[in-house]
């Protein structure tokens, strides 16, 4: 009880969110989901209002809350929608919102790469959905999710555990803005100076603070420090494309 009293701000949105998601999951006949939607909004609101801390810069905060809100709500809608085509569309929304968050985190290249890669992926997926799902029509498996209660509960327990780590408790919150598990992470200033012991490639001059967030810095890192890994990733792509061709049904083997 003591524990609940201390952490009710953490537990409450978890319970509400779990209820909302479980309720929204497709199961049997379609039903009115207004209450669940409201509860879900409440949960998201509580999380946004209490757990997230404004950084101070108004524009930054506004953009962050916008993108993250869109991403979370889009994610909920994506996983709960009865129609896979709309799921795909909501996924596109989530991807765009995440790209926006990338931008806020000084990763413009990744933001654009994500949009480009996923735009291709999403369109292809969308085409598949239209092609296959329209053939199948309204299907049983889209209307019935499996054990939504249990899965949602497990998922939200995991989320609760993660947030419990990330969010500082009240007495800890007072002295320092960064507390909890995150406070164990060394600061940037501490990282930069001493040589790494852990086997992570030593940062070259390209990855120092002045190149951070630029294409140049990322290129230096990728083709300097991680050249071998990049080659491997390229090989992986090649293998995957060959594999996809092999796995996919041949035209000669009949109509889809």
């Amino acid at each position: 009880m003591q524990w609940l009293k201390e952490h009710w701000l953490l537990v409450l949105p978890m319970v509400l969110g779990a209820f909302a998601v479980a309720r929204l999951m497709p199961k049997g006949e379609p039903r009115s989901s207004l209450v669940a939607r409201l509860v879900g909004l409440c949960a998201v609101g509580i999380v946004g209002g209490t757990l997230l801390q404004p950084a101070g810069s108004v524009l930054n905060d506004a953009l962050f809350f916008l993108f993250s809100g869109v991403a979370v709500l889009g994610a909920i809608l994506m996983i709960t929608h009865r129609n896979p085509a709309y799921s795909a569309l909501w996924f596109a929304v989530v991807t765009l919102a995440v790209s926006g968050l990338f931008l806020l985190q000084s990763a413009p290249f990744l933001a654009s790469a994500t949009v480009i890669v996923y735009a291709g992926a999403i369109i292809v997926t969308f085409l598949f959905v239209l092609m296959l799902a329209q053939q199948a029509g309204i299907t049983n498996y889209d209307q019935n999710s499996r054990q939504p209660g249990v899965a949602t509960f497990t998922g939200f327990v995991l989320l609760g555990a993660l947030l419990f780590v990330l969010v500082p408790s009240k007495e800890q919150a007072a002295p320092a803005p960064i507390t909890g598990f995150v406070s164990l992470v060394p600061k940037a200033s501490q990282v930069a100076q001493p040589p790494h012991q852990s086997g992570i490639p030593q940062s070259t001059s390209a990855t120092t603070a002045e190149n951070f967030g630029t294409m140049r810095g990322l290129g230096r890192s990728l083709f300097g420090d991680y050249l071998f890994a990049v080659e491997l990733a390229g090989t992986l792509l090649l293998v995957a494309s060959i594999g996809a061709i092999v796995i996919a049904p041949k035209r000669s083997s009949g109509k889809l």
Partner: peptide, 9 residues
Amino acid sequence: AIGFLTRRN
């Protein structure tokens, strides 16, 4: 993860 667990499509 929840979507992966529950959805069947």
